[in-house]
């Protein structure tokens, strides 16, 4: 396959993945607006006469993680499971489409939805909650937040491979909502009992949020390397689980489709 055609496939696959997601209100509306509405409520409205001086800034990082997590885990988890279920994936596998293009498209869709949420959150924080950060912090925070699509897509991929079609949405929600809460994405982690804080140590969203908070010097003080190491390890575990699931699904796919 020529490089030019490969590039074109990757690009169009991504384009149509995004167009498709944008036209799906069940996906686009929650992933694009929930982080903004939550942030508006918890930080802008409560924060201006709020709990403490730093709520809108703190929450910007954690709701940013929430905003990146949503499209990644739903796009991959529910999207992949659905496409496996309907047979779209099977059909595309018979074409010369490289498998990489499919994964690339999903990651790009997660990245672009994440970027839209992040940009909107930043504008809201800056102009409605009075958050001001150093220029490097704005860029670094955006960068750290968007880099979160990698572990979260890996997690979504693992779910999408293992969960069956319609149940995938339920499974994703069962992972997504408790993880968001326990990782301190809605309310600061230090407000929780110690047991819950210990649970958070196992969650990728917690470590990603801590990295984001590090940029604005509001993290819990664990070393950057620890967060990196946990995220990398968990990403690898998710990818390994996904690979295992794909192998298993291959040998059973006919029975499922018949």
């Amino acid at each position: 396959m020529t490089l030019g055609r490969r590039f074109r496939i990757y690009l169009l696959e991504a384009r149509f993945q995004i167009v498709e997601a944008l036209r799906e209100p069940m996906f686009a509306i929650p992933t694009l607006t929930f982080p903004l509405i939550f942030y508006l409520f918890f930080s802008v409205i409560m924060g201006t006469r709020g709990v403490s001086l730093t709520v809108p800034t703190y929450a910007l990082a954690t709701y940013g993680v929430f905003g990146v997590l949503g499209p990644a885990i739903f796009g991959f988890g529910a999207g992949l499971a659905n496409e496996r279920d309907t047979g779209v994936l099977l059909l595309k596998q018979t074409t010369p489409m490289p498998a990489g293009a499919y994964l690339f498209a999903k990651v790009m869709a997660a990245l672009i939805f994440g970027a839209v949420v992040v940009a909107a959150l930043f504008l809201m924080a800056a102009h409605m909650a009075g958050v001001a950060l150093h220029r490097w912090q704005w860029f670094a925070l955006a960068g750290v937040l968007l880099a979160g699509v990698i572990p979260f897509c890996a997690l979504g991929l693992a779910i999408g491979v293992w969960a069956k079609g319609r149940s995938a949405v339920a499974v994703v929600n069962l992972v997504f909502l408790p993880m968001a809460m326990l990782s301190g994405l809605w309310l600061p982690i230090f407000m929780f009992p110690d047991v819950m804080q210990d649970i958070a140590l196992a969650l990728p969203a917690y470590h990603h949020a801590q990295l984001a908070l590090k940029v604005i010097a509001m993290d819990a003080g664990q070393p950057v390397q620890v967060h990196f190491a946990v995220l990398m390890a968990e990403t690898l575990v998710f990818l390994a689980l996904a690979t295992l699931g794909f192998r298993r699904a291959d040998s059973f796919s006919m029975r499922r489709s018949r």
């Binding site: 940009a119 930043f122 504008l123 958050v131 001001a132 150093h134 220029r135 704005w138 860029f139 955006a142």
Partner: peptide, 16 residues
Amino acid sequence: LTTLPVPQAAEGPDRG
């Protein structure tokens, strides 16, 4: 990102 506000006050931990 380049048009977002930066702290008017001095540097330090008390941004915002």
